[in-house]
Design a protein around this nucleic acid. Sequence first.
DNA 1: GTCTATACCTTGATAGAC
DNA 2: GTCTATCAAGGTATAGAC
Lengths: 197, 197
Amino acid sequence: MPYPAKLTPEAIQAAAWALLEQGGPAALGMRPLAEALGVRPSSLYRHVGSREALLSTLAEQAASALRAELAAAAGLPPRAALATVAQAYWHFARTRPHAYDLLLTPVAPQAPGLRTPAGKALWGALLERVGALTGHPDDTGHAVAYWTFLHGAAALERAGLYGQSGPQGGVEIGLGALLDRMEAAGHLSSRPAGAPA
Amino acid sequence: MPYPAKLTPEAIQAAAWALLEQGGPAALGMRPLAEALGVRPSSLYRHVGSREALLSTLAEQAASALRAELAAAAGLPPRAALATVAQAYWHFARTRPHAYDLLLTPVAPQAPGLRTPAGKALWGALLERVGALTGHPDDTGHAVAYWTFLHGAAALERAGLYGQSGPQGGVEIGLGALLDRMEAAGHLSSRPAGAPA
DNA sequence: GTCTATACCTTGATAGAC
DNA sequence: GTCTATCAAGGTATAGAC
């Protein structure tokens, strides 16, 4: 009667997350995972299909988790919401770095990306908040610019590339410039075309 | 008398680049590399130390190559220079994707980052051009914002996360907003403090 | 149906002969 | 300096006990 006694999807995923979050994808092997569960490696294949399938499942869960944290901005005015979303986004990337890059790394070549349900929901949430500020629903251009900056900051910090002196305020500067641009687009679009502000 | 006849650092690195650029780090194994050189795998260890050491060497060379391409903006006025540097940066990331993420991925955990000679030179070049536009030498804040956006766009496109519809102009929007902000900082600083523009 | 036992192949890496 | 031989891990797969 070993500890978890049975292999359930939940138990497997929980153990997989533990290995992944401290040690990265390299530490999430089938053998270490089996050992953590008190089981032989091959037993996992009755539940998991393959290592890649397991990673895809975890990636989908990571997308859901990030989306959940981004809900923190609910009810705020548009600009404050986008600033809050940015903080939540970076907080997620900082506290769960391996979950974050699993989320954005296509596991299989030419695979999902963010074209999974959770990924699309995530993008939809971003689009909606950006649209609230610029006044254009489905404002893909501004949303791409915003997301590009969010990911750039998350990736550089996660890789330790800002150095020990940190981003030196550059993250706030860049985010501020982008939000200002979006806000300006909103003001312009709320007046008759050609009219001065 | 096999083709390259002897194992030299140059021959090894050339073969390693060939494997890396088409196939990524996964394709750069010690066995394939040895086979490409007409040699037994263990022979490589007299010249290379380890696979990680080889990857670090290639990363350093990638940094130098990127820096060389960024010199394309020499002689241009500040704003045009930064726009040109951005295009060159993205061109490098697009045409040599594996070299690009080798460049920015710390090979060993808690390792270099960009704290190598070539990495520092790269950062120095960016800092100088940003300073020319904002009027502040060593304007780390604006340089970080600029680099963050450059990397974000490179990384998202490289990962295929913009989808098949592409960035939808979002890259130009974001870059424009950042350059405008830098230019504004330059105008402000060239006038007496507190004076209106 | 679930797990154990076992085997195959690939990788990075090392020891020691020549 | 290059070779042969070999090791420890890893992912994957199958046969068969219960």
